[in-house]
Amino acid sequence: ATNIVGKVKWYNSTKNFGFIEQDNGGKDVFVHKSAVDAAGLHSLEEGQDVIFDLEEKQGKAYAVNLRIK
């Protein structure tokens, strides 16, 4: 899925991951530091509006192509 809109539920910059809540009511999506770095960001803030693509690997969904809304 592409261009999914959501809000950062939480992001832990020490542990380098967090979760994004989808605006469409879907399951929360894992986001890793690598996606944050690829977006040219240092971190994510709770409540921040983002747009992302959804990829699945080994049955787990995660956010890629992250951008600030």
Rank of each mutant, 00 (worst) to 15 (best):
E21S: 15
Q58T: 06
V8P: 01
L66G: 00
I20Y: 00
L41S: 05
S43H: 13
K7E: 02
E55S: 11
S34N: 14
T2A: 14
N65S: 08
K60Y: 08
K33D: 02
I4S: 05
K7Q: 08
I4W: 06
Q58W: 10
K57L: 07
V31L: 07
V36W: 05
T2C: 04
I68A: 14
V36Y: 03
V31G: 00
F52I: 06
R67W: 05
E21D: 06
L41W: 06
V5S: 14
G40F: 08
V31E: 00
T2Q: 12
S43K: 10
E21G: 14
Q22V: 14
D28K: 05
A1Q: 10
H32Q: 03
A61Y: 14
S13T: 14
G6Q: 01
S43G: 14
T14M: 14
K33W: 10
V50E: 00
L41P: 03
N12M: 08
V64C: 04
W10M: 12
T14Q: 14
G59T: 07
N24E: 09
L44E: 01
K33R: 08
F17G: 03
A35V: 15
N16Y: 10
I51Q: 13
D53T: 07
V36D: 00
Q58E: 13
D28F: 08
V8Y: 01
A39I: 07
K15A: 11
N12I: 14
T14F: 11
Q48F: 10
K15E: 07
Q58H: 12
T2V: 08
K7R: 11
H42S: 14
G59E: 09
V8L: 05
N3C: 04
F30Y: 10
G18D: 00
A38V: 11
H42K: 10
H42P: 12
G40Y: 08
H32M: 07
V31A: 03
L44C: 02
E46V: 15
A38E: 15
G47F: 09
V8K: 00
W10V: 05
Q48A: 06
D37H: 13
G40I: 05
K9L: 11
K60Q: 11
F19H: 02
N24M: 09
I68E: 14
H32N: 05
F17W: 09
D28M: 11
N3T: 05
E45H: 13
F17D: 01
F17A: 02
V64M: 14
N24V: 12
K33Q: 10
N16R: 12
L44S: 01
L54A: 06
A61I: 15
V29S: 05
V31M: 07
V8S: 01
H42C: 05
V29E: 01
V31D: 00
H42L: 12
T14I: 09
L44H: 01
L44P: 02
F17M: 10
K27P: 07
E45F: 14
F17R: 02
N16Q: 12
A1C: 04
G59N: 12
N65L: 05
F52N: 00
V29N: 02
V8W: 03
D28V: 08
L41Y: 13
S43P: 09
E55G: 07
F17K: 02
A39M: 10
N65F: 06
Y11T: 02
H42V: 13
K15I: 10
F19L: 05
W10C: 04
A39G: 11
K60F: 13
E55D: 11
Y11H: 01
F19E: 02
T2P: 11
N65M: 05
A1E: 07
A39P: 02
T2D: 05
S43L: 15
D37P: 02
V64I: 13
V8I: 12
L66R: 00
W10H: 04
A61R: 15
E55A: 15
A38S: 12
K15Y: 14
V31Q: 00
A35E: 11
A39Q: 05
Y11Q: 01
E46L: 05
Y62H: 09
F17Y: 10
N3L: 06
Y62G: 09
E56W: 11
A61P: 13
K9F: 02
L44T: 01
K7L: 07
D37R: 14
Q48Y: 07
I20V: 08
G40A: 11
K15P: 01
V29M: 04
K9A: 05
G25E: 09
E21T: 15
F19P: 00
A35P: 01
Q22Y: 13
L44A: 02
G6K: 01
Q48L: 09
N16S: 12
G47Y: 07
Q58S: 08
L41N: 04
F52L: 03
V5R: 12
E45I: 14
S34A: 11
Q48N: 15
V50C: 04
W10R: 04
Q48P: 02
N24W: 12
R67Q: 09
Y11W: 09
L54F: 08
N12R: 14
